[in-house]
Design a protein around this nucleic acid. Structure first.
Lengths: 254, 254
DNA sequence: ATCAGACTGTCTATGATGTAAACAGATAGC
DNA sequence: GCTATCTGTTTACATCATAGACAGTCTGAT
């Protein structure tokens, strides 16, 4: 069992563990950072400081407010100092998400799967609402970081006690995950300022009424003509529909 | 009924119609471009040429391959010439999506809602698979362009004949829309080259096995341990679950 | 105690990028 | 023909991600 540092296929810096190469970020997040003392000056800060600063910037000004130089400035260091801790901007996104979400909620085992996955979904939604910029981060690869996997694992456990197969649980989890992401993206208006969000909604309704006239787009006109339902109700209403679908699948097995 | 050109709230160039201001892109897409002859040289090309060139670039090299200068070069013009047709990069995205998707499929009225929305979902999925970069475009505002609204309208009509209220139909449509986007994003591996996609899948499985050990993450290990199901089956399986949920809602009304 | 080598933060530099401003030529209606 | 307006182009700038070289700092081996 050795540790090797080298370059991966796409020119990434890699840390080898047991023959399997991991990008440095993942190795760091999983705590593979060997604690042994090494020559050279002590690091002035830690990858988590970077995450904290970046999340602070993103919470305040959206993902566009996060740049290597701005994060570095927030920490009081030069831009290039960040590269001693993080190999690339994409890796910064990984640690940001990891830091913003933390660990998933505890799911009470005494409740049924429906209550549990609902709890999970609401916690996920709350996380996304608190950090809407997460939805603007381009996803290139499936999750491998500790907290992300913990959330995944947590959701899968919500289906304990059901007759669903492991793959079924994965599909079901995916469905709920997708649903929460999707509605939050469309519902929680993507503006940093709430006033601006309200204004954007108003403008959208105005333009839609202008363009989607009842003669050309009767369906749209009908659906948007009424007043919009409460945001939270809308969420659980849609989620219930998804869960009804999963329930139907369970019933079909039994 | 007059037309006014001015500046909107966020400094956008606007074209006023009936008191409601529209960003120039939307006005162009909706064909408000007054055909009257004007002084000055004739435009060398059209907004749709830009869309075509940009889509070509994105299809070949992903959304990252689309920049104002690359698109301009593709057309044989200078970068800045594009700004005579398009106000900003975000507007380019709008016309790209509009051009890439075109009109929605015709939904056969003689079939039931389930067959119709399935057809719609599959067409949408096919569009996303043909132009995966669409999923990488940051969405700041809800859709207002002609083809996008046509797709929306089309999906709503799939529920004709059901007892669902207009809002219910909107929720149901949203659910299907979200589902297709979500699965496609996670399923259709986001690499341009299929070989590279397979390689990425292999690497992911490898790393997941390393990190998500059965003792720490039994759920994940169990779900990913088996071999992955066929992509298309997976799609319809999940979609059926969503539709079962909608069916349950219909049943509850009846 | 010394010292080589590894590691630190910084400085400088490069190539993209999105877009503003000023410009010279083209053209339609007067 | 004149003038206003529109065209594509040139030049310019701020921002960005990141590579490379550098001088100082610390540790472990000698």
């Amino acid at each position: 069992m050795g540790v090797v540092v080298g370059m991966g296929g796409r020119g990434e810096r890699m840390v080898g563990m047991d023959e399997v190469e991991l990008p440095r970020v993942l190795a760091q997040l999983w705590g593979v950072e060997e604690g042994r003392s090494r020559p050279g000056p002590k690091p002035a800060f830690h990858i988590s400081d970077i995450a904290r600063a970046a999340v602070r910037l993103a919470d305040a000004g959206g993902i566009g407010a996060v740049s290597m130089s701005k994060v570095a400035a927030e920490l009081g260091f030069t831009t290039m100092s960040l590269y001693r801790y993080i190999d690339a901007k994409d890796d910064l996104y990984v640690v940001m998400i990891e830091h913003a979400f933390g660990l998933p909620p505890e799911l009470p085992p005494e409740q049924d799967w429906r209550a549990r996955i609902t709890l999970w979904a609401e916690a996920f939604r709350d996380g996304l609402r608190a950090h809407p910029w997460v939805l603007h981060i381009p996803v290139h690869e499936p999750p491998l970081s500790p907290n992300q996997l913990a959330w995944l694992e947590s959701a899968l456990h919500a289906f304990d006690g059901t007759p669903l197969t492991p793959q079924d649980r994965l599909s079901a989890m995916l469905l709920v995950n997708i649903y929460v992401r999707g509605t939050t993206q469309l519902t929680a208006n993507m503006a940093t300022d709430p006033d601006e969000a309200r204004e954007a909604d108003r403008r959208y309704a105005e333009r839609l009424t202008l363009l989607a006239t009842p003669d050309r787009f009767p369906g749209i006109a009908g659906a948007f003509g009424q007043q919009p339902p409460d945001e939270t109700d809308e969420f659980s209403f849609g989620l219930d529909t998804v869960l009804d679908g999963i329930q139907a699948r369970i019933d079909r097995i039994r």
